[in-house]
Amino acid sequence: MLKFKNVDAYYGYIHALKDVSIEVPKGKIVTLLGANGAGKTSILKVISGLLEIKEGSYEFDGKDLKNYKPEDIVSMGIVQSPEGRQIFPDLTVHENLMVGAYTRKDKLNINKSLIKGYEYFPILREREKQIAGTLSGGEQQMLAIARALMAKPKLLLLDEPSLGLAPLIVKDIFNIIQEINKSGTTILLVEQNAHQALSIADYAYILETGKVVHSGHAIELRNDEKVKKAYLGSS
């Protein structure tokens, strides 16, 4: 569904992505793992049209994505829930969700998506009229995911949904990510919490300083001694 072929990208002089090739098959959960600054978020920025690539190519459903604007990418069905949630703090929960539906052409079905989003995260319905900046961290993360779902994505990009959240809430959110995937949405998940990510992913790429250094099925990586040592702690 999504394919990167030998992609190179820079922030000014900083070489952020070096010869990156990854693939996200339809219907799967693929995760990108690695430390801070490994290039995970850069990959998402490239996909969403916020960072230009220098070399290589990347495509979605066979269509070359280079030179598309962020809003066109969303219209094609690729939506991101960005790192640090980035909800709109002065808008209400409901307004935040409506922003997510901005590109929808089928205005009549927006309400269906809203109901669906509230089914995944019932707490958001209770907080519908509340100013989003007053939500707790976990609720803001739920809002960020629900907002992305409002665009009815084919491919959902999740950047560090576990960041700064209590373990119990992380577990809830990962369960729902799995549910969203089962209902037909392909997911590309960026995580520092490798343990959690490998437990729900089908396939994983491990990045280091802008390069893919390891990849494989999630089950294999979970049992791989080297990976265990470097990314999963000593467990």
Binding site: S48, G49, L50, K69, P70, E71, I73, V74, S75, V79, Q80, P82, Q86, I87, F88, P89, D90, L91, E95, M98, V99, G100, A101, Y102, T103, R147, A151
Partner: peptide, 23 residues
Amino acid sequence: TLFGIAIRATAQNETTAKLMGIP
């Protein structure tokens, strides 16, 4: 209106507004 919500969203966080598909 949705247009007005988009104006306020852009005012609060331009990059995320782009990510949500707001032109």
